Amino acid sequence: MKDKELEVKEAMVAFKPTSHICQHLCAFHFYAHDLSRQVEAHHYCSKGEEDGVMFQCIIYDDDAPSAKLIGVEYIISRDTYASLDSEEQKLWHSHAYEVQSGMLYDPKGDSRADLPHMEALMTTYGKTWHTWQVDQGHKVPLGDCMVPE
């Protein structure tokens, strides 16, 4: 029994899913239903590489230790996007304009669109849900999940 308890404790401490986070990106998200609202979104992404998902990202409102977890985003390749039916494609957004405009950038490094890691993002698509509308001043996540533009 003692070995099983130790195994459980080690699994809890390992943080295996989050230990694979390899990229920090920042973006300004606008809510699809109200483009006058925007929120700073810090993405901490791990490589997916399974079933067409290139990255899976957890999104925070800041990069401080007290940051609030406000959403998730899945990032897929252009080929995977092209394989989706037209109704599903409506739920995804291109990253090309976000990178070119500077709305999606690497806060820890050079974010020019012509750099390899940023250039690669221009050929991807994202599907995002915000679970906490921090721009509304909510102390806890309230209401439905929101889809940013």
Rank of each mutant, 00 (worst) to 15 (best):
T80A: 11
V72H: 03
G52T: 00
G102A: 00
K47H: 08
A64P: 00
D62L: 10
S111V: 02
Y81R: 06
K68Q: 14
E87P: 08
T131S: 12
W129M: 11
Q56N: 11
S36R: 12
D106A: 08
V13I: 09
L142E: 06
A27Y: 09
T80M: 10
V134M: 03
D61L: 02
S66K: 08
L25H: 08
G102E: 00
H130K: 05
T123F: 14
E49S: 14
Y44F: 15
S101G: 02
V140C: 13
G52E: 00
A11G: 13
K4W: 07
P116R: 00
A67N: 08
E73W: 00
V134Y: 01
A120K: 09
E40F: 05
F30T: 11
I59K: 03
G71A: 06
K139Y: 06
I21T: 08
G48T: 03
K47M: 10
A41N: 11
L25S: 09
A120V: 00
Q133T: 07
Y31D: 13
K108D: 11
H29V: 01
L35F: 09
V147C: 07
E50M: 11
V134Q: 04
A11H: 08
E87W: 09
V140R: 15
A27M: 07
D63W: 05
H24G: 09
F28C: 01
D34T: 01
I75W: 02
C145S: 14
L121H: 00
K47W: 05
T123C: 14
R78V: 00
K2Y: 11
T124A: 04
E98W: 05
Y44I: 10
H138W: 11
I58V: 15
D63I: 06
G102V: 00
V8L: 09
M122W: 01
E88F: 01
T18M: 12
Y97K: 15
I58N: 12
C45Y: 04
M103G: 14
S94G: 14
G102T: 00
E10L: 10
S83K: 10
S77H: 07
R78P: 01
Y31T: 07
L142Y: 03
D62S: 15
D106M: 04
P17T: 03
Y97V: 14
C145V: 12
H117D: 04
R37F: 10
P107D: 01
A32P: 06
I70K: 04
P116W: 01
V99P: 00
L25M: 13
A27H: 06
H138T: 06
E98R: 08
S101A: 08
M118N: 04
M12N: 13
E149Y: 15
Q136H: 12
G109I: 00
E40P: 04
